[in-house]
Design a protein around this nucleic acid. Structure first.
Lengths: 127, 127
DNA sequence: CGGGATCCTTAGGGATACTG
DNA sequence: CAGTATCCCTAAGGATCCCG
């Protein structure tokens, strides 16, 4: 905020640049990330299970997103050296704390999707 | 859910396909969308103000995102036909209801960014 | 089974110039 | 001031093949 800003304590201020929210959003803003966390919130899952449950995700994106989440400490990756190998992904304690905020978002979505869609229709007809 | 799924009531199940959450996420998952809503949560703003406050956004993306939000009924666009013209964006009532969930996410970010960064460092050094 | 490596496409988004 | 219209380019992501 070098620019001449009003004295108003904007909620927007912390959003600029590389504030925490922004860095986290770059991660969880990713559609796949949220979906994966959502699924794992319902219980541990194997790679192939995630691949099947999350409709539309490619194997590449699944791998990539899982790596990112593991790197962030939000999920763990456990390899069972059987034949064939079995790999199980689980939420960490930190990862589980994300479920709350995400559920809030989910509830908002369910509650407002109708209005949003209606608004879109109206917008598209006019203007 | 045509696929043979287990009876488990997974939180993940509603995430697949084009469930409400997914459609909303495609919108608010967008980094700029969240930032704009955040700024407008602090008060109405003009186009140029948003452009300055949201560091890194291009004019094209700002316009585009604002149009989408207006179409979704989350913000309003008011034109004051002065010279030069003045355009003010505000959150609608619906848009304001999004602030809660987003703030929850913001708080999570602030609370956990340290851990996430630490986890990333550890992950990068080893493995 | 759970990926890694490669190739290849396309669309998201920046930069620039112009307008009411 | 608040956009719209074009061009252009890069990097995200899909498809495919292969391996431990």
């Amino acid at each position: 905020m070098v620019t001449t800003s009003t004295a108003t304590a904007l909620i927007g201020d912390p959003y600029v640049a590389d504030c925490p929210t922004r860095r986290i959003l770059d991660r969880i803003g990713d559609r796949w990330t949220v979906l994966i966390i959502g699924v794992l919130g319902g219980g541990d899952a194997r790679f192939s299970q995630l691949l099947r449950r999350i409709e539309g995700i490619s194997q590449k994106m699944l791998t990539q997103t899982l790596r990112g989440l593991e790197r962030d400490g939000l999920i763990t990756r456990t390899v069972y050296p059987e034949v064939p190998v079995r790999v199980v992904y689980s939420l960490t304690t930190a990862g589980r704390t994300l479920l709350g905020p995400l559920q809030a978002l989910q509830e908002w979505s369910i509650e407002h999707l109708g209005d949003v869609v209606a608004s879109q229709s109206a917008y598209d007809k006019n203007d």
